[in-house]
Write a protein that binds this DNA or RNA. Structure first.
Lengths: 108, 108
DNA sequence: CTGATGGTTCGAATAGTTTCGAACCATTCT
DNA sequence: AGAATGGTTCGAAACTATTCGAACCATCAG
């Protein structure tokens, strides 16, 4: 029996902290990831970064920050991972926030 | 003729960057300051921090981060300084953002 | 002018974040 | 089972942010 990497820890809805969410979204690379998820879940392998040569450990770390802040969900799917925005949880705790961030990010 | 500290540099509306704004708001102390300004401008001396013993250089630095991100305005007024949220500029560039952040911060 | 009040700036120490290779885990395909 | 694909974790180096004292600037009161 090993470490069960398959299920990564996600904070509960009530444990989401506004400042953590804002921090997670305050990095251009992470914000770009969230934008790609705006239209629905994506497999991590199909989620690009600005630099396609970026090592996978770096990409994984970016996802970790977003996940630990409660912005995204990261589930095992087949041999990869499926990423999605935690819309309902975010909306319940911080109404309108993710929408205005995505709206503002889209304009640029 | 000295350095004219009286007028501090503020970014122009079109130079505001979403990630900088989110970063500025991602610190609990800075977010608390912005909340105090939500109901209108305040003199810096009347704007409290969680720790009333915090040195003024630290307080000044927190204000600087908020100002350089374009979240607040910091104007000379009498012997002190008057702080205010740059509502119009923020609303023009990132509609709904500051409102949802303040709304979410208020619930707690 | 002098002193008191209110803030900014600078520099240095501390703390936290990011980056990335190496090692490892999990699933699928042959 | 073995090999390939897709991700996570760990640790160390590089970078960035925070904290705070000391020095300084600006305005007002006497």
């Amino acid at each position: 029996m090993a470490l069960e990497i398959t299920d990564l820890p996600h904070p509960a809805r009530d444990d989401l902290r506004l400042t953590d969410v804002l921090f997670a979204l305050s990095d251009p690379e992470r914000l770009a990831i969230v934008r790609q998820l705006a239209d629905g879940p994506l497999e991590m392998a199909h989620c690009h970064l600005s630099d396609p040569l970026m090592p996978k450990s770096t990409k994984s770390h970016l996802m970790k920050v977003l996940r630990e802040a409660g912005v995204i969900r990261n589930e095992s799917l087949g041999r990869g991972r499926r990423l999605s925005i935690r819309h309902e949880d975010l909306e319940a705790r911080f109404p309108g926030l993710i929408g205005s961030v995505l709206g503002a990010a889209a304009k640029a």
